[in-house]
Design a binder for these strands. Structure first.
Lengths: 354, 354
DNA sequence: CTCGGCCGAGAGAGCGCTCCCATGATCCGA
DNA sequence: TCGGATCATGGGAGCGCTCTCTCGGCCGAG
């Protein structure tokens, strides 16, 4: 229950609305109106107040405002430690950037919540429950992640990045999310390989406890209805796992003539193994990745054909979706129909590898 | 002057201190005392209040508390867009993690401020000036970055990561910073090369508008007092620039027998060029980097000898330093002597390349 | 037994703001 | 010229909390 032990702030008493009002020769109420847009105040007074604000260097006290309006103009972005590749992963960089940019448009602040291991959830819950933020954005998590339930219990409006594993339908409230069309993208990737005349198309799958990986597997099966199970190998989204999977593949199915990797990192690992074993890409084996990670896709040889998603756009969408949820909550008091999730399209980017 | 346009928060009126007090059968003042540690309240009452808090699920209203205490338990971390490699750069990941962890210890929140280009400074200034945060952490910037002056004008206590370019001494208040011992680290690196019997030791320097690069150059000169200017080449901390610099070096000074690169990325570029030109590392040319970036150092062949800095520790130190600054401000009203900056030690990590 | 001192608890002010409501001023049509 | 509607303005309550100040009860000392 103890709280912030931070020492007192220094800023030598900033001017208050009262001071502005006095200087402008109006009441505090009028000054407040002007500061908040100036609707319903006659121009001359608006000017006077504006000038007073300028001269005094007045900046509204956020705490006081929050106290009465019950909104605080801040959104939490929750990053779970298990996914701490977040920062090294350009995926997150772009997503957070999109979020940041969009939040600026809404004049809202980004509060970064970094979950330090499972024991840290109570801290997050406390913070979320403390009403410090108007809403939360979290990222798609693993199957057994408690974060969704922590967020739900804190009763804070939230939007997920990436489709979360959720009970789905047994009375649990659905949390809206923004995700790329992983399944459709995977279909496009595999169709590309089919159109090249490949018949033994393998898939190096991502970890089964992430929906993105599952969806990509599903897309693969959509096109290859009766795919040989032996052609599907398990990876974990790292380059090494891609290399391992490729090695297995070549061992069990040396006749493989195409590979759809669950992401670019795994594709790069697979590519390395293919080179080592003397297979030419794309002549002997065609290769498609997923994500269009700049740092990978163009530095490998040959450049990787892959599926692109608008990551920054997804970040922006998360914010917009959250704002809509908050609007609904505010307006009707309760849910205005379940807020729809958004699936953003993907595009196949053809380079040399397939 | 318009502010957050966020819709109203949903949380159905949470219990107030008043409610807790009523339930515990004490006054609001006593309840407050208990919530804030319980000093000077007799045990039976403490228990009663604690129980009431528990039962009601009371969480203090942050805004109300901030309003009266003038402290808000939040620290801004400012990231400038020009440096947007921040997220892809593991350096920042670790630094931010250190900051995040240390802030948790102080029960403070991390507010992420992302500067979106130069025009965005006014927004940052407004936010900082708005008293939303108790202090700020910013990262070492380029020579002409306005951020330091923006922060100064906002009169928010701040600590920099990396030594900033500051006028230094002409009346400007010194901003404390945390930096690695770049100069000492560079000396160690060069001494290593000297100890290997190398006599024509080159330096691929980082951009001159960053103090870290300048300090490393200085360290190089500390050891090689009369270094041939031709042995010093300019890079910009990217792998490509390292490759370019190495190519130049080989052209002008084919007799070069050692290279100290300003960072690991440039070292990796140099390494690539050395291989291409048939120079063996370390036999023909010994190579040392700087940073000990995991993703580079062990994946290149041969593994890179480099200089390691405790990046997460630097993040933590930034927080601790800031807290000390805040303490001083709070206690004495004004500066209790200039707060000292901290230079953290570096260590030479010897691998195969030198 | 009385009185000063001390300590624990409550009363109440007030942090800076927004917003409801009352109050004048203004303006229209009759 | 006057009444009622309209609109800009000010007064004032109160958001939830902390903190000072006061008060009352208990103690030990005289």
């Amino acid at each position: 229950m103890r709280s912030a032990v931070l020492p007192e702030q220094t800023a030598g008493s900033r001017p208050t609305l009262e001071a502005v009002a006095a200087r402008a020769g109006v009441s505090r109420a009028t000054a407040s109106r002007v500061v908040n847009g100036g609707a319903g105040v006659r121009p001359p007074l608006v000017d006077k107040v504006r000038r007073a604000v300028e001269e005094l260097g007045y900046v509204p006290n956020h705490a006081a405002r929050t106290l009465v309006t019950r909104r605080n103009g801040a959104i939490a972005v929750i990053i779970a430690e298990p996914e701490f590749r977040v920062f090294s992963d350009p995926f997150f960089e772009q997503q957070v950037r999109g979020i940041s940019r969009e939040l600026i448009a809404y004049d809202a602040q980004l509060v970064l919540l970094w979950v330090e291991g499972p024991g840290d959830h109570s801290r997050i819950a406390r913070y979320l429950g403390g009403g410090h933020v108007d809403g939360a954005l979290a990222f798609s998590l693993h199957h057994d992640d408690e974060l969704p339930s922590v967020i739900r219990r804190a009763r804070v409006p939230a939007v997920f990045g990436g489709r979360p594993f959720l009970p789905g339908g047994d009375g649990e409230p659905r949390v809206p999310y923004v995700d790329a069309d992983n399944r459709g993208g995977a279909r496009e990737a595999v169709r590309r390989l089919v159109s090249l005349g490949r018949t033994r198309i393998a898939h190096i799958a991502g970890p089964r406890d992430q929906t993105s990986a599952l969806d990509r597997i599903a897309g693969y099966h959509d096109v290859l209805l009766d795919a040989d199970p032996e052609l599907i190998r398990q990876g974990d989204f790292t380059a090494e796992s891609g290399a391992r999977a490729m090695a297995e593949l070549l061992e069990h199915r040396p006749d493989v003539d195409a590979v759809f990797a669950g992401n670019d990192l795994m594709a790069s690992g697979a590519l390395r193994v293919l080179c080592e074993r003397g297979r030419r890409v794309p002549q002997d084996v065609a290769l498609v990745g997923f994500d269009d990670m700049r740092t990978v896709v163009e530095t490998v040889d040959p450049p990787l054909t892959t599926v692109r998603q608008d990551i920054e756009g997804m970040g922006r969408l998360m914010v917009r979706l959250l704002m809509r949820v908050l609007d609904d909550h505010g307006a009707n008091g309760s849910r205005t129909g379940s807020p729809a999730s958004v699936i953003t399209p993907t595009t196949l980017v053809v380079r040399a590898s397939a």
